[in-house]
């Protein structure tokens, strides 16, 4: 009993250390990525294409739905308290600072986190990683770093689009149900929006991007030899990314308000 606990703790600790080392390597190689133009450039472009461009539609629909809901609820409920201007603050908090980055992260975890984990796991099973090593290509530099950078860039860009669709696209949706004046809406929104809000949303996107891509890559690499482990890598990547993203979100939010 005690031995099994000890063994599992040792196992966990060594895996944690390995994960830390992996992360350190990713950071190191990411910094080098910008210093010289790498062959991984194409992987980066495709990563942004898959993670960013192709997730744009889901992202936009979600943003507009949430934004429209806030406008409709806010414009009918808040005036009862004489606080109709609060609506713009709520929109900025929900869409720009809190929900926007997190929901974008969730979309990306579901789409690209699994994709990265299973793709890399498939490469491990097919000995493709060994093949990269055998020709002198560092798999972290070539495979992980473009994915990390692509993921971070995609999330940052997606969160800009999320804001755009959530704050402005939702306005157009609401026009169909309950018209409100554009100039007044737009100006109030701009007044409610602070640079810190945008910065905070961006910071979250960056952190989430690093978390999702690193976790997914790590889980992809961490499998053994069996092809049955590939979906397991995907599942683990999603689970861990979710938990870590929510954790990071709470930390960043607390850091702002504390």
């Amino acid at each position: 009993m005690i031995e099994s606990i000890g063994a599992s703790v040792r196992d966990k600790a060594s895996r944690f250390l390995y994960a830390l080392a992996f992360f350190g390597r990713v950071v190191d190689r990411s910094l080098r990525f910008f210093r010289r133009r790498q062959v991984g450039y194409k992987v980066l472009v495709f990563q942004i294409l898959f993670t960013g461009v192709e997730a744009l539609l889901v992202n936009a629909v979600m943003a507009m739905a949430i934004g429209a809901a806030i406008i409709v609820i806010g414009s009918s409920l808040l005036p009862q308290f004489g606080q109709s201007r609060l609506m713009y603050d709520i929109m900025v908090i929900v869409i720009t600072k809190e929900l926007g980055p997190l929901l974008t992260a969730f979309i990306v975890i579901a789409r690209s986190g699994t994709a990265i984990a299973t793709e890399l796991a498939g490469m491990v099973v097919g000995h493709e990683i060994e093949a990269y090593i055998s020709v002198g290509v560092d798999p972290v530099s070539f495979l992980v770093v473009p994915r990390v950078i692509g993921m971070v860039a995609s999330l940052a860009l997606l969160s800009i689009y999320f804001n755009l669709f959530g704050l402005l696209g939702s306005f157009l949706v609401v026009q169909l149900i309950k018209p409100i004046a554009f100039a007044e809406y737009f100006q109030s929104l701009l007044a409610a929006l602070a640079p810190g809000d945008i910065l905070s949303g961006m910071a979250k996107s960056l952190v989430f991007g690093v978390i999702i891509s690193t976790v997914a890559s790590y889980q992809g690499f961490a499998i053994g030899r069996a092809s049955t482990e590939i979906p397991v890598a995907g599942i683990k990547a999603v689970g861990q990314s979710f938990v870590l993203c929510i954790f990071a979100d709470v930390l960043i939010t607390l850091a702002q308000y504390a």
């Binding site: 472009v45 495709f46 942004i48 294409l49 960013g52 461009v53 744009l56 860009l157 800009i160 945008i198």
Partner: peptide, 20 residues
């Protein structure tokens, strides 16, 4: 891919700068 990603990125930046 290059062009699409380029447009995607540039548009986001232009919009961000515009909003700011």
């Amino acid at each position: 891919a290059d062009r699409i990603v380029g447009v995607f990125t540039l548009l986001a930046f232009v919009l961000l700068v515009g909003v700011i």
